[in-house]
Each structure stands twice: as structure tokens, then as C-alpha cells.
């Protein structure tokens, strides 16, 4: 259900558009920066509220956010993803939304992304982290 809403937001804000991503990387529009920036802003405030007031989950558990530890993959992988992001004009979320929007050729892109993930798992030990 949350995924469904996310899909709707991605399409309605045109965040799944290849053109919007081009605009962003060319600094020719504030649109995508506004979306990502305000999402982070609301996210930070929500997480702070949850932490300060020790808000519990629906199942009455404490909210635990896994700690991310730095590794060089954040840098190397980040750069590689960035290159791909500017080519496909889509990060993983929008890939799914584009398929739903009737761009069936993006199924090929998604399968290729799955293949990329698989290759990472296959050669993980040999990569610098």
C-alpha cells in the first residue's frame, strides 16, 4: 500500500521522467532538488520526533534504525550508480514506476539492474570496500 502511494507520487511529480533527471544534472531546474531536499527535510524531522518521544511501532516495539558503517563501496558504487542514473534517467524506484506506466522496454533495464546486483554479489569479495 505504501509502495502504491510511492509509485503514484513518483509519476505525478514526473520524478520518473528521463527529462527531469537531465534537467537536474544540468542545474536547469530546482524541481528534483526540491523533491529530494524536502523529502529529506521531512524525513529528518520525523526521525527526530520518533527518537525524542520514543514513539513505538504498531506492534509496540521500539523503533530501531540500523547503523550504516562507511566503506569505500559507498564511494565507488555511488559513482557507478551515478553514471547509470544519468543514462537511464531513473533510480530503482522509478524503474518500477515506469514499467507500471506502460514503458515495457524498461523491463529489460530492470532485468539488467538485477543482473548487475547479481554480479556484485558474485564478485563482492574481490572488490575494494
Amino acid at each position: 500500500m505504501v509502495g502504491l502511494l510511492f509509485g503514484i507520487i513518483l509519476v505525478k511529480s514526473e520524478a520518473i521522467s528521463w527529462f527531469r533527471i537531465q534537467e537536474m544534472f544540468r542545474f536547469q531546474s530546482f524541481h528534483m532538488y526540491g523533491i529530494i531536499g524536502s523529502a529529506i527535510f521531512v524525513g529528518i524531522i520525523s526521525v527526530q520526533i520518533i527518537k525524542r518521544f520514543k514513539v513505538k511501532t504498531l506492534y509496540n516495539e521500539l523503533v530501531v534504525i540500523p547503523v550504516k558503517t562507511f566503506h569505500w563501496g559507498n564511494v565507488y558504487g555511488g559513482l557507478i550508480f551515478g553514471l547509470g542514473w544519468a543514462i537511464t534517467g531513473a533510480c530503482p524506484g522509478p524503474l518500477f514506476a515506469e514499467i507500471g506506466s506502460g514503458f515495457f522496454v524498461i523491463l529489460v533495464t530492470l532485468l539488467s539492474a538485477i543482473a548487475g546486483t547479481w554480479l556484485y554479489g558474485f564478485m563482492k569479495e574481490k572488490l575494494p570496500h
Partner: peptide
């Protein structure tokens, strides 16, 4: 279509996450 997707899949996993 293909290479771009591959970089997205490989890069995000290597980086440990994507935009979300």
C-alpha cells in the same frame, strides 16, 4: 536500456543503497 540498468543495479548494491 541495458548498460544503464546494469550500472544502476551494480552501483546501488556496491554503494549499499540508492536514492531512497
Amino acid at each position: 536500456i541495458v548498460l544503464g540498468g546494469f550500472l544502476v543495479g551494480f552501483g546501488t548494491r556496491y554503494a549499499g543503497g540508492c536514492t531512497s
